[in-house]
Design a protein around this nucleic acid. Structure first.
Lengths: 353, 353
DNA sequence: ATGAAAGCGCTAACAG
DNA sequence: CTGTTAGCGCTTTCAT
């Protein structure tokens, strides 16, 4: 016992004084700031989060201390206490695909304006256990979720429902939304592409499709629609993701080297299409006269390199903005009248323009 | 006082029983699991985080409960208690640039394997207050930081030092590293590019440079090196970021429409270079005979579209992997012998190959 | 406009 | 191998 203490011995039989040393993080805490400012911790908290509730003098004093000390609030603690993390988790297949990036950038920007931070989870293309990834994200207690696609395992759906937070599924549509949806119909894209090309008079078709869920849906619809007109593809190739221009060139070579001579080749992305066009050109073929190519997404680099490329325009930025808008509204407690948004698409055929 | 209590009155003068209702989150807690499994909470915690310390029977029982209930741990709470968030914050300029993406993907994958999650912070290109962004990220208490570039304001440097966590600066080199560095010298890239082109006999130069810190360093070095050989650029243009192929085309037009007839145009990225090549081609010019173009990064789509493109190869994936490796080592308490890694670069000139 | 008390859900430290 | 205790840093509720 520390008998040097000037205070009389207190009731030491009560379960006791700290046996455990405090594990300080070395970081400044809100308590430190409050002492320096001569107010209680809760007042500092208010100064930071609801400055309008604090007298301007107090506010100024606190802000001075915060600036001078370089205090940075601990949002792990804040989130735990308030049950709001100000985190939005987004699960996308990969960073290697400009399409998803183009959606995430505006989403990120909108959320950031309201002090929400976007955390990306990359599922990998053959969806490496979406459920595990989701669990990992949920353990961070995000305030909302963004999911790519509308197909989820039953355990994933359970987990999502249990999370009881706003969810937006993007890049697809579904009759059974979990909550919010912003996308378009890949079935209709495939059908529309087939009809467009058929309408231009093409009768000999080939396709190159990425190993990707939505790409396959588009291609299946493409094949079906052609089938309704009594046409079968002359050649079909599937390539790994993420796709590259190089793979596009190789695919073209494969189609031609196997002897197929399609009038038009339908690709699951502009990246592939661009590669096919580059290869066609280097073989001295004329596009679209000798062979036409159709892509998907209407990416800048393809459109500005080979204007003869026919493609499907999708407003990827709009998907991100709509998703962000709806999420923020939900997080703000607002009611959303139409939780399912079809952003649509349209076919761009600059060759015939 | 609650006199209906069957227990004898306790020392009610002590500060008192709970006046505040518990604010349950609705989520299952570790406590719930521990009760269902008939063990103490800490045992559940161990079963989840250090299974080797738990008897296999107990472990099995706990795991059964976890699976059946769909329990998801709360990492906000865990992080607060353990002072480890398992978060790595990375600040990059934008998602719109394939170069940074190519670095982030492998970094993300490496970290994910060790259960660290990458949180991206987008600084925007004219670096919209790096300090604010950093503060926002630090408030999440990441276990490590990844920064793009080596130039930081003094307040930012202070904050970084105060954070006392591993930091890796990427995409550049510096004589004054904060901690770890993985990059290459943009000054040397600019110089090497100039010498390479000069060595091929070119004497009339133009440049198109993105409004970007590192791009400008490369160009300044390019200009300086040419200057040492008594050469001034005939034409210089700067374009906004993120750069697009379209902007490349427009830049080419601008150079030629102003009357300049350079033999070679040095661009700050392959995206721009690609655009220039597309425009040159559509004007019927021969590359590299009528006009040569040099890019930067060696992106797939450019290399496989216009093989005549001279460029600077940078192993972007290696930057991400090295950064991830070093960070993980640091987080694992290991000593790192050489904290500054120069991944280098080399000039690729497929035209003359 | 400010404060006191309690506790969010978890893990570190120590004890057995 | 398992449990007890305390507390991470913040915000909530209620009181003044």
């Amino acid at each position: 016992m520390d008998s040097s203490s000037p205070t009389p011995p207190t009731d030491a039989s009560k379960s006791g004084r700290p046996k455990v040393a405090a594990r300080s993080t070395g970081n400044l805490t809100l308590d430190d700031v409050s002492k320096l400012a001569g107010v209680s911790p809760i007042t500092v908290s208010r100064a930071l989060n609801h400055p309008e509730l604090v007298a301007s003098e107090t506010l100024a004093a606190i802000r001075r201390v915060v600036t001078e000390t370089g205090y940075v609030p601990n949002l792990l603690a804040g989130g735990l206490a308030s049950n709001r993390s100000r985190l939005v988790a987004a699960i996308i297949p990969t960073l290697g695909n400009a399409m998803f990036i183009d959606t995430m950038q505006p989403l990120n920007d909108m959320l950031a304006q309201q002090d929400y931070r976007l955390v990306l989870g990359l599922s990998g293309f053959p969806r490496a256990d979406e459920d595990e990834l989701l669990k990992g994200m949920l353990s961070r207690r995000p305030d909302a979720l963004v999911l790519t696609g509308v197909r989820h395992s039953s355990s994933t759906r359970l987990r999502l429902r249990a999370a009881r937070i706003p969810i937006v599924e993007i890049w697809d549509l579904t009759p059974e939304p979990l909550d919010l949806v912003v996308g378009f119909s890949h079935v209709r894209v495939g059908g529309a592409a087939a009809l467009h090309l058929y309408g231009k008079g093409y009768r000999r078709f080939a396709s190159v499709c990425a190993h990707d869920e939505r790409a396959r849906v588009r291609h299946a619809a493409f094949v079906n629609t052609l089938g309704e007109h009594g046409i079968n593809l002359e050649s079909m190739h599937e390539v790994q993701t993420p796709t590259t221009v190089r793979m596009g060139r190789e695919s073209f070579a494969r189609v031609f080297n196997e002897g197929s001579r399609p009038e038009v080749i339908f690709c699951s992305s502009d990246v592939l299409a661009h590669g096919l066009l580059a290869e066609a050109q280097s073989r001295g073929l004329k596009v679209p006269d000798d062979v036409a190519v159709m892509g998907f997404a209407d990416l800048d680099f393809a459109a500005y390199t080979f204007p003869a490329l026919t493609t499907v325009h999708v407003d990827r930025g709009a998907i991100g903005r709509m998703a962000g808008e709806m999420l923020l509204a939900r997080l703000d407690g607002k009611i959303i009248e139409s939780p399912v948004v079809d952003v649509g698409f349209h076919i761009v055929d600059r060759a015939s323009a």
